[in-house]
Design a protein around this nucleic acid. Structure first.
Lengths: 226, 226
DNA sequence: ATTACTAAAAAACGAGTAA
DNA sequence: TTTACTCGTTTTTTAGTAA
C-alpha cells in the first residue's frame, strides 16, 4: 500500500490516542474512521504492523494498538511537510551542511559566456565559485530532484576555443533569510541529488560567517514563470 | 479514488503554490512528488479536475493548475483534523448547537434503575434531563458515530412494572472546559448521528448560562478502559 | 517537448465465512 | 461477540504509444 495512504491511517490512530499508549481498536469500528470494511481494516492494521508502524496485540479477542517510534518519526516528517505547505506555499526551503566542492565552480563561473547571461537574468555577476550543500533529509533530496526538473531560468550553453559548456538553470534564492543568491543546476553534473549548488554575487561563506561543516538554510520561491 | 488519498495530492499542489495562482505542473515532474508514473499523474490531475478540486489548463502543451475554493475547504478540514490529532490525541472534541429535546430525557433520568448505576459509575446522580446538541460539521458527525461504537461505560437496561428500559453507554466529558458531565448513548434512540446527548449532575444550560440555539463545546477523553 | 489513451498487469476491496 | 482468511470483483497502476 502506498506510504502516503498508510500515513493517513496512522493519523487516525494517533487521534485515537495510540501515540503513547495501547488503545482498543476493534476493526469493526476503526473501519468507520478508515472508511473501509471490517476486512480491509484488518488487512491495513496487519500491514501497518508488518511494516513496523504499530504494535498490535489481541486482548480478549479485540485488537489493541500503539504507534511505534518509527511511525511517530514518519508522522513528524509528514507534519513538517504539511506545515511548510501551509505556511510557505510555493516555497522550497532547504537545509543542509556546507561541504567542500572540487573547486571547478570557480572555473565555470568565470567564463564570460555564463557571466553575461547571469548578469542579464539575475542582475549581477556571480562571485567566481559555487557553494556546495549536502542534503541529508529524504524530504530535502526529493525536493531537490523536483526543483531540478522544473527548469527555472535557462542559461544557454556555449563553446569557446577549446570546448563546449553545457546549459544550466538557476532559481533565485534567499540564503539564511539575508543574502540573495541562486540555486544552480548544471545540465551535466557529477553530483547526485543529495548535493545542491548555490551562487551569489558575494562570497557566501565570508558574507554570512559560515565555514565548511556548518548548517545552511535557504529558500527558493517559485515564480510565476516556472 | 479514495478521498484521503486525493487530499494528499492536493497538499502537494498546495506546496507548489497552487493555492492562490496557476502554477506550472508538468505531469512528468509532478509524478516525482506524487510518487506515481507520468501516466498515473495525468489521470490523478484529470480526476481532481473532474471532481472540482483543481482548475487545470494546458498552455503551450504543459499543464498548469490552481486549487479551487472547494479544495481549499477540504484541505482546511483536513488540517483541522490533523491539528486536533497532534494537540489532543485521544480526545474527541465536539462543537454544536443546543437544541430543544422532546423532554423524554427527564423521564428516563429519573428512573431509579438508571440513577443507581450512574451514581456508581460516574459518582453522581444526573440532573433529570438531557441536553441535546445538534452537530453540523461532517467531521463531528463521523466522530459521533465512531464514539458511539466504542462502548464506553456500560449501564445495564432493566424493567419495572410497566416496561423495559434499554441499556445505555456513557463517556465522561468536560463541557465548556468547566463542567463535568457525560455523553450518553441510548441503545435505542430516535435521534440520528447528528444529535448527541449530554448529562451532568447539574442543569447544564443554567450552570453555564446557555440557552437553546447557543453553541456548546465539550470533549471526551478516551480512557484506558475503552 | 508535452498529454493522455489503450490494454494488460497489479493491487486493493469486501462478502462470505471459519475459528 | 471478535479477527482475519479465501476468493471473485473492482480499482489502480504503468508501459507503450498516438497526437
Amino acid at each position: 500500500m502506498k506510504k502516503r495512504l498508510l500515513i493517513t491511517y496512522l493519523i487516525d490512530l494517533l487521534k485515537l490516542g495510540a501515540g503513547d499508549r495501547l488503545v482498543k481498536a476493534p476493526t469493526i469500528y476503526i473501519s468507520h474512521i478508515f472508511g473501509l470494511s471490517q476486512q480491509s481494516t484488518s488487512r491495513v492494521l496487519t500491514e501497518l504492523s508488518d511494516l513496523g508502524y504499530i504494535h498490535k496485540e489481541i486482548r480478549d479477542g479485540t485488537v489493541w494498538v500503539i504507534l511505534t517510534d518509527r511511525a511517530m518519526e514518519e508522522l513528524e516528517m509528514f507534519f513538517k511537510y504539511i506545515d511548510g505547505a501551509r505556511k510557505y506555499p510555493g516555497e522550497f526551503i532547504f537545509e543542509g551542511e556546507i561541504v567542500k566542492g572540487l573547486g571547478e565552480g570557480a572555473y565555470y563561473m568565470s567564463k564570460p559566456g555564463y557571466k553575461r547571461q547571469f548578469y542579464r537574468t539575475l542582475g549581477y555577476e556571480p562571485y567566481p565559485g559555487t557553494l556546495n550543500v549536502k542534503l541529508s533529509e529524504p524530504l530535502m533530496i526529493t525536493q531537490n530532484k523536483v526543483l531540478r526538473k522544473m527548469k527555472g531560468i535557462y542559461i544557454k550553453g556555449f563553446r569557446d576555443e577549446s570546448r563546449t559548456f553545457g546549459s544550466v538553470q538557476v532559481y533565485p534564492a534567499i540564503i539564511m533569510e539575508k543574502l540573495e543568491g541562486a540555486v544552480l543546476y548544471a545540465r551535466r553534473t557529477i553530483y547526485g541529488p543529495d548535493i545542491i549548488e548555490l551562487i551569489s554575487e558575494y562570497y557566501i561563506k565570508g558574507e554570512l560567517g559560515l565555514k565548511d561543516g556548518d548548517i545552511i538554510r535557504f529558500k527558493v520561491k517559485l515564480s510565476e514563470n516556472y
